[in-house]
């Protein structure tokens, strides 16, 4: 006579106590942990702008991004990026490109890093004056308390 074998059932592990153990370990490490004090150099990143105030970038606008601090100096005019030392060439090149496409610059939008010295800003402004781009807009994110 063949004796039928009992189907082997794998015993289930009771996991009820698992969260208790995890929480106990978590609390232990939370209480005993001390953070290592490290002297780190803080790097101030330039502010990123939310440019939603303009629903669509106008093709007649010239966009200038200016970054001049101890870490790097950079100028971006429309889509062309370069060194600040070449600001005249960069601005002139983009304005002439726009002119070639039959676009005359209406307004220059300037996005400037807060630590940029005013001498740099003034140089760019003078160049815009030379090119007869007299309407400028500073885009910033300061709201003075009133």
């Amino acid at each position: 006579m063949k004796i039928p074998r009992k189907a082997k059932k794998q015993p289930k592990i009771n996991t009820t106590a698992l969260p208790d153990i995890i929480f106990m370990l978590l609390f232990f490490f939370m209480v005993t942990t001390t953070m290592q004090n490290q002297n780190m150099q803080t790097i101030e990143l330039p502010a990123a702008f939310n440019v939603d105030f303009k629903s669509k970038s106008n093709p007649n606008d010239l966009e200038i991004y200016l970054l001049d601090n101890s870490i790097q100096n950079m100028l971006k005019v429309n889509d062309e990026t370069g060194n600040l030392g070449n600001y005249k060439q960069l601005i002139n090149h983009q304005v002439s490109l726009m002119k070639q496409n039959g676009i005359f610059v209406n307004r220059a939008y300037m996005y400037i890093d807060e630590n940029t010295p005013m001498s740099t800003v003034n140089k760019v402004k003078e160049e815009l004056q030379e090119l007869n781009i007299l309407k400028i807009s500073y885009i910033h994110n300061y709201e003075s308390e009133s």
Binding site: F49, N50, E126, Q129, S137, Y138, H140, Y142, E143
Partner: peptide
């Protein structure tokens, strides 16, 4: 929270 951007318009005198 998103950074709000403000616009300050200026008219430069002709060079």
């Amino acid at each position: 929270t998103f950074n709000k951007a403000y616009e300050l318009q200026m008219n430069l005198p002709p060079a």
